[in-house]
Lab assay of single mutants.
Amino acid sequence: KKVTINGVEIKFNNPEEAVKFALELAKRLNLRIEFHGDQIKIE
C-alpha cells in the first residue's frame, strides 16, 4: 500500500502504519494534518 505524504510516496504494509507515522510526524513538528484518501497533507 502506497501513501503519499506531502507529495512523497511512502510504501507501508498497512494503512494504519501510514496514519500512525503521519500523526507522529505532525505531533513532533507541531503541524496540522489532512487526510484525502491515500493522500496525507501535513503543514
Rank of each mutant, 00 (worst) to 15 (best):
N6E: 04
K11C: 15
K20Y: 09
R28H: 06
A22Y: 08
E43D: 09
E17Q: 09
A18S: 04
R32A: 04
A18P: 02
N14H: 08
K27W: 09
K2G: 06
N13I: 11
D38Q: 06
A26M: 08
A26H: 01
G7M: 06
D38E: 07
K20Q: 08
E24L: 11
K1R: 13
G7W: 10
L25H: 01
N6A: 08
N13Y: 08
V3Y: 06
E17T: 06
V3E: 03
T4A: 04
Q39W: 14
T4P: 03
H36P: 03
F12H: 01
R32Q: 05
L29A: 03
N30K: 10
D38N: 11
A18I: 09
L29H: 06
N14Y: 08
I33D: 00
N13F: 10
V19N: 03
R32L: 05
F35E: 02
E9G: 05
I5Y: 12
V3R: 04
V8C: 15
V8T: 06
E17C: 15
R28V: 07
K27D: 04
K41T: 12
G7H: 04
A18Y: 07
K1C: 15
D38H: 06
I40D: 01
E24K: 08
Q39L: 14
K11Q: 12
I10A: 02
G7N: 05
A22P: 00
G37F: 09
F12Y: 04
V8L: 10
T4G: 02
T4E: 04
K1G: 11
L29P: 01
I33N: 00
I10S: 02
N13Q: 10
E9L: 12
P15R: 13
N14F: 11
T4S: 08
D38F: 12
P15K: 09
R32T: 07
V8H: 10
K20D: 04
I42L: 14
N13L: 12
K2Q: 07
L25A: 04
F35G: 01
F12W: 05
I10F: 13
I10T: 03
N13P: 10
V8P: 02
A26T: 04
K2P: 06
F35D: 01
E17R: 05
F21K: 02
L29C: 15
G37A: 08
K2D: 04
L23A: 04
I40V: 05
K41E: 05
L31Q: 00
V3N: 02
I40H: 02
G37W: 08
I42W: 02
A26L: 10
K20I: 08
E16A: 11
E43V: 15
A22F: 12
K11N: 13
I40P: 00
L23V: 07
P15E: 10
V3I: 09
P15Y: 14
G37M: 10
L25N: 01
L25C: 13
G7C: 14
K41N: 10
E9T: 14
D38Y: 08
A26F: 10
V19D: 02
E16W: 14
G7V: 08
A18E: 01
F12V: 03
I42A: 00
V8D: 02
E24N: 07
N30C: 15
A18R: 03
N6D: 06
L23S: 04
R28Y: 11
F21L: 04
I33Y: 03
R28I: 10
V3D: 03
H36T: 12
P15Q: 09
K11F: 15
K20H: 06
A26Y: 06
V3M: 05
E16F: 12
R28T: 05
T4Y: 14
V8R: 10
V19I: 13
E43R: 11
K20T: 06
N13M: 11
K41Q: 06
D38I: 09
N30G: 11
N6M: 11
F21G: 00
I5F: 13
K2C: 15
K20E: 06
N6K: 05
N6S: 05
N30A: 06
V8N: 04
E43T: 15
E34N: 06
G7P: 04
F35Q: 03
T4C: 15
N13R: 13
A26E: 01
V3S: 01
E17Y: 10
K1N: 11
F12D: 00
L25G: 00
L29F: 11
E9Y: 11
K41F: 14
F21I: 05
L29V: 03
K41R: 13
P15V: 11
I40F: 03
R28F: 09
E17A: 11
L29W: 08
N14E: 03
E16G: 09
A18D: 01
G37C: 11
E16M: 11
R32S: 05
N14G: 06
